[in-house]
Amino acid sequence: MNEENNGGDVVVKVRDLKKYFELHVGMFKFWGEPIYVKAVDGISFDIRKGEVLGLVGESGCGKTTTGRLLTRLEDPTAGSILFHGKDIAKLKGKDLKEYRKNVQMIFQDPYESLNPRFTVLKTVMEPLLIHGIGDTYEDKVEMVIKALEDAELKPAEEYLERFPHELSGGQRQRVAIARALVLRPQFIVADEPVSMLDVSIRAGVMNLMLDLRDKYGIPFLFITHDIAVARYMSDRIAVMYLGKIVEMGETDDVIFNPLHPYTKALISAVPVPDPDHKHGRVEIKGEIPSPINLPPGCRFWPRCPYAQKGLCDTKDPPLVEVKEGHYVACHFAEKFAAGEEVPKKESALA
């Protein structure tokens, strides 16, 4: 990856990050060869100050695992995660706790991520207690109120004594956001934070996150399977397929000029809320395979309409910068970028 634009504004710098899960299936163990799920298989990206990086892809491609690695809820198998220049991939004990204070995660399910027996006050105050922040109880309450108001739960006093079941879905997700904000984090990972919310409520939660980014300059890794949501939220988008980033660039470059065959398919599959919009049908075959038996070469070739025998099924294409700030992992990326015709079918693999 291009090392030049890694100036001082890079908050998180991820290089060749991997997470392999060992499968504990008796029979496989018996034969002595451990079997791995390559959930994240060598990804690199930067997140800059005040930036929202959208991470998209189909179910099981490794989005959540990436988020859990960055928040160190998961130990990486290999690779580095530089946070303000300091490698946190192998942090332990006190250092890890300190890092966790600076980095917060917001989860998909506002029904599960909040303890049903905790009031809003207790929920949002808990991180302050864990990290010993705030001198007096009154100080802590004040911080909680500030965080709730930042999350647009106003007047905050009205919410303090409520339990999760006394809140709407959108309000619960705002409480989860307040809980993340109360520690004044320097980086937030949001994993499908609006997927469970109804449309009429979703827009408010998305706007809230964008406003917080503007107000505090907090960078976000925003994980979603919904491309339209990713477009709305992100400055840049990274597309994942089977543990790898296959394309990354400025949001509208990726949306309007996708260069990887997988991204092209993904975007053409997104339905548009306009009855006059006619889109072609996706031309990729089959469904996303399991990350246990990865195909050799480019891992997209069994589904790719452009796959070429002897190349795509043997050689794994690296992620290269084909246009300024636009990275693609495909042997034909340069041709796609130059608008050249790339033959389909006749030379494609069966």
């Binding site: 449309v199 827009a203 949306i255 809320p273 306009d274």
Partner: peptide, 10 residues
């Protein structure tokens, strides 16, 4: 209101 709350890639 629904249409104004709905994100699109178009």
């Amino acid at each position: 209101a629904l249409l104004k709350a709905f994100p699109s890639i178009k």
